[in-house]
Design a binder for these strands. Sequence first.
DNA 1: CGACATTGGATGCAGAAGCATCTAATATAG
DNA 2: CTATATTAGATGCTTCTGCATCCAATGTCG
Lengths: 151, 151
Amino acid sequence: MAEPGRKTLRSWRRLERSYALVHGRLEEALKSQGLPPLLWLRALEEFARCGEDGLRPFELQDALGLEQPAVSRLLEKMVGAGLLNRTECQDDRRGWRVAATPLGAETRERMAVAYTDALSAHFLAHLGEKQARALDEILGDLLESAGPADG
Amino acid sequence: MAEPGRKTLRSWRRLERSYALVHGRLEEALKSQGLPPLLWLRALEEFARCGEDGLRPFELQDALGLEQPAVSRLLEKMVGAGLLNRTECQDDRRGWRVAATPLGAETRERMAVAYTDALSAHFLAHLGEKQARALDEILGDLLESAGPADG
DNA sequence: CGACATTGGATGCAGAAGCATCTAATATAG
DNA sequence: CTATATTAGATGCTTCTGCATCCAATGTCG
């Protein structure tokens, strides 16, 4: 392994700091509008993506890359908040099928608006179109190469 | 605000995922070698950067961008682990002065090696030199522009 | 000097993440 | 069919973070 150069090492520090900065601002924006945290948006988007019949918890776990107990508790809260409903799963009585309620769909839309606005203000506004494309490409390659099994 | 394009939005998602992926692997690498978490390395680096007389807790807080209670507890643990020592602060009897012990310095070095190795394996190896420089530049601009007060 | 505001730091408490464990149901092997 | 292994999901425990509060020392203003 060649000695990594200074700029090369620095790029990771900057990625860390950029992530922390922007992520913090996004969460802040949602909270300030009385909306749930980002994770809930990710979940609601998964439910929007799938059909009427909803998802099994383990499918959501897979899609979001969470630990199983995290999903269990996330769903518990989202059901409690009226955004999702659980129905017993007919073909596998160990599990459940979970789907978004109308309130869940509406919340997803409100969160998406707040999210896009905040992202525009705190990320995209500081990035040229060209830089955004370059980032997209570089990180796309990275994810593909490093991806789940470290390529 | 212009409508953000798909790739533009996607660049943020990819940054998030890249961060989570690599950060997770770095922590994992440290843990697997029986070393403390990344945050401790950041702290030890600050102590290495400053002189013999060490740092006041609030200076570390500033340098690492943490909440005050987090610093308080971090120092408590690191002192407990023998990596730092606290001395009473002569010119301000509210506070303390904290500095790295020899064990702290040695731990910093071991962590730095493990860190650099893991970063090389899980980040740099998947990135050309050119891409790393491009990332460094783009994110440098972003941080400067979005920086603490949202520029 | 004495009253009040500010600052350095510690601590109590609630919410979230990771880890191990536990249960019920299903799948597999004999 | 019975015994075992595997899978879906819940729950307890510990650790960490964020938030609010608290204490003590310092600074400021009359």
